[in-house]
């Protein structure tokens, strides 16, 4: 409950944030804090400097362009769940964001924080992989864009390297349906397993909680048999923990993939 000593800075621009992070190799970007502050309370990870991103202009913006929905990294789950732009351009994001944790956490927790923490049980990583989002990462040497399926590298590990920041998320506007299904610990709790599906040009299904990062399956057609056999063919080796032995997660992966796809197809 009690943090170790730490320094704090609240920069007013991306450049300032980047230089603070560059100057402090043990610095950490502090987004909504709904994961990081807990990690610091447990003193599992140490940080010498917290770079608070709450003061950076534009980081909470949601914009629609012709083809995409542009989301700032500090957009909260509550914003996602309610934004007219999101509901219009990619409603699955709103639907899933509304299932995360609880009101207080949704008010404070952010899209960028959710993605950058890359916890395999998070809701949003498989969704962003399924919908084919791209992430913009800024660093000392400029910015680059990474597709979602290359963004997540492992447990708590993403393409955002030391001294870098996730500065934007771009999601194609929907043409057809998306779906999401999960089994959680209690109603709307942490995911034991989840799956997101999209039938926007090809059938993309992303499985969560069964590997260190979302598992993307390109399914030949949007029927249950195809998706079940794609899951079976993925040779999943999910982790076992108190909430689910590996065999159970493997079972759920198939069931949830089919359910997510059913929703995606139904909404198409």
């Amino acid at each position: 409950m009690l943090l170790a000593s730490v320094e704090y800075a609240c920069p007013g621009s991306v450049d300032e944030a980047l230089s603070l992070l560059a100057a402090n190799p043990n610095g950490r970007a502090l987004a909504g804090g709904q994961t990081l502050v807990n990690v610091l309370k447990a003193r599992i990870a140490a940080a010498e400097l917290l770079v608070d991103l709450n003061g950076i202009p534009g980081f909470r913006e949601i914009r629609e362009t012709d083809g995409a929905l542009e989301l700032g990294p500090m957009v909260t789950y509550t914003q996602l769940a309610r934004s007219e732009e999101v509901l219009r351009s990619r409603p699955i994001l709103a639907e899933v964001a509304a299932q995360i944790a609880d009101v207080q956490v949704r008010n404070r927790g952010t899209l960028g924080g959710n993605l950058c923490s890359s916890d395999p049980t998070n809701h949003l990583p498989p969704v962003l992989v399924a919908v084919g989002a791209t992430m913009t990462i800024a660093g000392a040497s400029g910015t680059r864009t990474v597709p979602a399926e290359e963004f997540f590298l492992g447990v708590y590990l993403t393409a955002v390297g030391p001294g870098e920041l996730l500065t934007g998320i771009s999601v194609p506007r929907r043409q057809a349906g998306d779906g999401f299904a999960s089994v959680t610990i209690g109603a709307d709790g942490t995911c034991i397993a989840n799956a997101a599906a999209s039938v926007n040009g090809g059938v993309r299904v992303a499985l969560g909680c069964v590997s260190a990062k979302p598992v993307l399956l390109e399914v030949p057609s949007a029927d249950e048999e195809s998706v079940r056999s794609a899951v079976a063919g993925a040779q999943l080796d999910p982790p076992s923990d108190i909430h689910a032995p590996a065999a159970y997660r493997r079972q759920l992966a198939g069931v949830l993939a089919a359910r997510a796809l059913r929703q995606a197809s139904g909404a198409a």
């Binding site: 709904q34 502050v37 807990n38 309370k41 447990a42 917290l50 207080q104 956490v105 008010n107 404070r108």
Partner: peptide, 29 residues
Amino acid sequence: VGCDTGNCGACSVIVDGTLLKSCMMLAIQ
């Protein structure tokens, strides 16, 4: 304070109109 992981909500307060858990925000913020 009822937990140390941000789950219990006993510390909920409203900051600038937003309901949040005050165990997951630093005072300095």
